[in-house]
Amino acid sequence: MAKARVKAPKKAKAGDIVTIKTLITHKMESGRRKNKKTGKLIPRHIIDKFTAKFNGETFFSSDWHGAVSANPYMSFSYRVEKSGEFEFIWHDEKGEETVKKTKLTVA
């Protein structure tokens, strides 16, 4: 569906608290904007849920509404314990999902 960018560390030490930054292309159509030519409301279409998991377990999530800007940016933290895999999931109202995975190695 959409293009996503994620900055998550590839290597870290146990106990580190790391910052993760994510971006995704999405219009986040609020459903309150009018088509300039037809004057009709453009149907609402937004990403309504963002989830961040590590080794399958959710450690951060966010519910989004029409007030979230287009091409949403989301940054948050994670406390590193062990090696594994991050999984980031953007779920949109039409049921489509964009998933991005990155690996983390604990030295």
């Binding site: 951060f60 966010s62 519910d63 007030a67 979230v68 800007s69 406390r79």
Partner: peptide, 25 residues
């Protein structure tokens, strides 16, 4: 705003810190 809903952020102990950044209309 046209509606009061903006966003909710859900943390866990594994978050390490309760902080987040985003962009709003």
């Amino acid at each position: 705003n046209p509606g009061p809903e903006m966003a909710s952020f859900h943390f866990t102990p594994a978050s390490g810190k309760a902080n987040a950044a985003a962009r709003m209309r």
